[in-house]
Design a binder for these strands. Structure first.
Length: 404
DNA sequence: GCCGGAAGCC
DNA sequence: GGCTTCCGGC
């Protein structure tokens, strides 16, 4: 059955009144071009999406240090993610596994001691999103960082000198002026010297800061933050996402959506970057550049907003038991269709919401697990998966019920 | 809750 | 490659 993915759940961002206009998380963070090598939305993108939406503040929100966020309602986040990916059996356990894969990629790390709390490593995000910045071959930003380096790569200081060595390498925008020279024209307390603390997202690499957050310049690190040049993860920016496999590929992002990668990237960059472009060339992001964010900026410029509607009518925030009657029928459903007592297609809603009846379902548990463990120990052949109703699933389901 | 291995899927 | 699913262990 089709997944009914149509368009965007999360678009039409209302700009929270309490948020400071002119400051926003940069648009690029919400664009699929920020997910190189992937045509599907990536989880960290989705997380950013949720984070920038006021209506999900009760579900997930920025909290604590810069880039740190807390998942207030893990089940709901998982559900939303499942909806987006058309995975009706998604849960927090699986979602968190996906998040943990980001640790090695240094996109995220866990805030230890705080439940459901993670932290973005914006330096990585920047690298991912600014391929035009030749960082890999530059002393800028942790030369060891992404090349298998070892010594505290995330803590490598980013010096002004390193920055200066980087920026002349940026492709010229055709105006013949060094980008860095333009940066140098930006008025600031230190004149033409590029301040390190102008780039908190570069210097705040995980797991520690090159400076303690409190020393990263004049920008407070406790909400409400006041980030420079429109870079504030607390605030709403634009995004447009589409991961709906049912949509024709051509509809995703019109070719004119990103007319000039450099221009667009720079335009999306916060102030000192976007200001590098001549007036009138600050595509899209210009509205949040010198002029500041006027309110709803919208990453759908040139394209239609896309929604990934849940496969059921009504509002997004549904009861926990209200999940998908008939999402895409994947392998799980096929397996479940052979599981006694389990209706195919009823999925997680029944499984979790109604509790599956818990004990005794399937009767697989005891006998089946030992071969599985043996297989895991390498004593047997191919992996055998447990089915819902086995001891592990019961544990998980029990936890889910308890949480609910 | 969190972690990371392993296998599978797309 | 980026998850998803499942798991044992802590």
């Amino acid at each position: 059955m089709d997944c009914n993915c149509v368009s965007d759940l999360l678009l039409t961002p209302p700009v929270p009144a309490l948020w400071t206009p002119g400051i926003a998380f940069p648009d690029w963070a919400y664009k699929p071009e920020s997910s190189p090598g992937s045509r599907q939305i990536q989880l960290w993108h989705f997380i950013l999406e949720l984070l920038q939406k006021e209506e999900y503040q009760s579900v997930i929100s920025w909290q604590g240090e810069y880039g740190e966020f807390v998942i207030k309602d893990p089940d709901e986040v998982a559900k939303l993610w499942g909806l987006r990916k058309c995975k009706p059996h998604m849960n927090y356990d699986k979602l968190s596994r996906a998040l943990r894969y980001y640790y090695n990629k240094r996109i995220l790390h866990k805030t230890k001691g705080k439940r459901f709390t993670y932290k973005f490593n914006f330096s990585k995000v920047v690298l991912v999103n600014y391929p035009l910045l030749d960082m890999a071959s530059s002393p800028f930003l942790l030369q060891n960082h992404f090349n298998g380096g070892s010594a505290a790569p995330d803590c490598s200081p980013v010096t002004p000198e390193a920055l200066q060595s980087l920026f002349p390498r940026l492709p010229e925008s055709g105006r013949g002026t060094s980008l860095f020279d333009r940066v140098a024209t930006v008025p600031g307390p230190e004149g033409d010297k590029l301040r390190l603390d102008t780039f908190p997202f570069l210097s705040s690499a995980a797991p520690c800061y090159s400076k303690p957050p409190s020393l990263l310049g004049p920008y407070p690190r406790n909400p409400p933050f006041d980030y420079p040049w429109g870079f504030n993860p607390y605030l709403s920016g634009a995004f447009s996402l589409n991961n709906c496999p049912k949509l024709p590929p051509g509809s995703l992002y019109p070719s004119h959506f990103y007319p000039n990668p450099l221009q667009t990237s720079l335009g999306q960059l916060p102030h000192p970057f976007s200001s590098l472009l001549p007036p009138g060339e600050v595509a899209g992001g210009g509205q949040r550049g010198a002029a500041g964010q006027t309110g709803v900026t919208n990453g759908t410029a040139g394209g239609q907003p896309r929604l990934c509607l849940p496969p059921y009518p009504g509002a997004l925030s549904l009861g926990r038991t209200d999940i998908v009657n008939g999402g895409s029928v994947g392998e799980r459903e096929r397996r479940e269709s052979n599981t006694p007592g389990t209706e195919p297609g009823l999925g997680l809603g029944l499984g979790l919401g109604l509790g599956l009846g818990g004990m005794g379902l399937g009767g697989v548990a005891g006998g089946a697990t030992e071969p599985i463990r043996a297989a895991r120990r390498g004593e047997a052949g191919p992996r055998v998966r447990l089915r819902p109703g086995d001891h592990r699933s019961e544990r998980l389901q029990l936890r889910q019920r308890q949480r609910a």
